[in-house]
């Protein structure tokens, strides 16, 4: 099922949470809504679910206008950050709940409900735990129950709100891989919200980066990482360093010196240079970025060095091999291997 969000605006008590957002979600894809808190990503997810109603705009499931449907009618599967399992029901009862509450006309017979629930518990690798209560499971197990419960109603769209947010790092990584496998096997159109860029990059077919109630960029993880469309996306996805530069004669200048980086077709004037700290070459010679080391510390297999460039106190970070002898006050010259210029 494809989902189309068309010019949706959402206000809470006059406070705008989403401004005029449009997004096409393809059938069967796994798309991540990524952004800092307050960016509107959860609001967008809840609007798709029908847990909130848009102030303006429409949401289509396939060709049907879902905006007029209640959450019950939309047939979506929703997984909450804190699981939201029914504590007084066993695991099996939790998973079969969605089928049991159907009106008699569309409700499968009891045996069929049980068979499907057990099948799903098998899919999420929890066979044998069906008689337990949620309280007796670990966080990771609970979240898998929540997913099985959402899948039980054969949802048109699967929506996950920070599904791994409450779990610790180890379990998180495991579940991430496992969610990908489940998705590949079941093929549900899946939207998940996260503020963890690593999770989004690793897990999704496409990401949708959001900030302050707007969509900044939509694309595959590689596109978004390699070609960020705005300073925000550059800064939010992956590590980044930024410097104000001047463009003149198709070259970049800092403090009256050319740094050996071509400007392409960027017009003459002030500009902002962005590059990844690990994506630099150390150079000897004149045309380079040169700075004085202010701090230097080893982070695992690399050495993270902060440089002060020019007299205006601009600082950037670059990564060096961990055995590089960079000490404080020493001078280092480098050139970014890949970079992006944004208007000042």
């Amino acid at each position: 099922m494809e989902v189309r969000v068309a010019n949706v605006r959402k206000e809470f008590d006059r406070f705008p949470a989403l401004h005029d957002v449009s997004l096409d979600i393809r059938s069967g894809e796994l798309i991540a809504l990524l952004g800092p808190s307050g960016s509107g990503k959860t609001t967008l997810l809840r609007l798709i679910a029908g847990l909130e109603m848009p102030t303006a705009g429409k949401i289509f499931f396939g060709d049907t206008d879902a905006s007029e449907k209640t959450v019950q009618e939309r047939n979506i599967g929703f997984v909450f950050q804190h699981y939201a399992l029914f504590r007084h029901m066993t695991i099996l009862e939790n998973v079969s709940f969605g089928l049991k509450v159907r009106p008699r006309s569309s409700r499968p017979p009891a045996g069929e409900i049980r068979r499907r629930a057990m099948e799903l518990l098998d899919l999420v690798q929890l066979s044998g735990l069906e008689k337990r209560y949620p309280n007796q499971l670990s966080g990771g197990q609970r979240q898998r129950v929540a997913l099985a419960r959402a899948l039980a109603i054969e949802p048109a769209v699967l929506l996950l709100d920070e599904p791994f947010g409450a779990l610790d790092a180890q379990v998180r990584r495991e579940l991430r891989k496992w969610l990908r496998e489940i998705h590949d096997r079941t093929g549900h159109t899946t939207v998940f919200v996260t503020h963890d860029q690593e999770e989004a990059l690793e897990l999704s077919d496409r990401l949708c980066v959001m900030s302050q109630g707007k969509i900044e960029q939509v694309g595959t993880p590689d596109t978004v990482y390699d070609h960020p469309s705005s300073p925000f996306v550059f800064g939010f996805i992956g590590e980044s360093s930024e410097l104000p530069v001047t463009v003149e004669n198709n070259e970049l200048w800092i403090g009256g010196r050319a740094i050996g980086v071509p400007a392409g077709d960027t017009p003459t004037g002030q500009s902002r240079l962005f590059f990844r700290p690990h994506d630099v070459d150390l150079v000897e010679g004149d045309a380079a970025l040169a700075g004085v080391v202010t701090t230097s510390r080893r982070v695992g297999g690399t050495r993270r060095v902060e440089l002060e460039i020019g007299g205006d106190g601009h600082r950037v970070e670059i990564d060096l091999p961990f055995d590089h002898p960079a000490g404080e006050k020493s001078r280092i010259a480098f050139r970014p291997r890949r970079w992006t210029l944004f208007p000042a």
Partner: peptide, 11 residues
């Protein structure tokens, strides 16, 4: 009917 749906929160 659609109108009322809009106003009532699902919870």
């Amino acid at each position: 009917r659609a109108r009322t749906h809009r106003r009532i929160s699902p919870t």
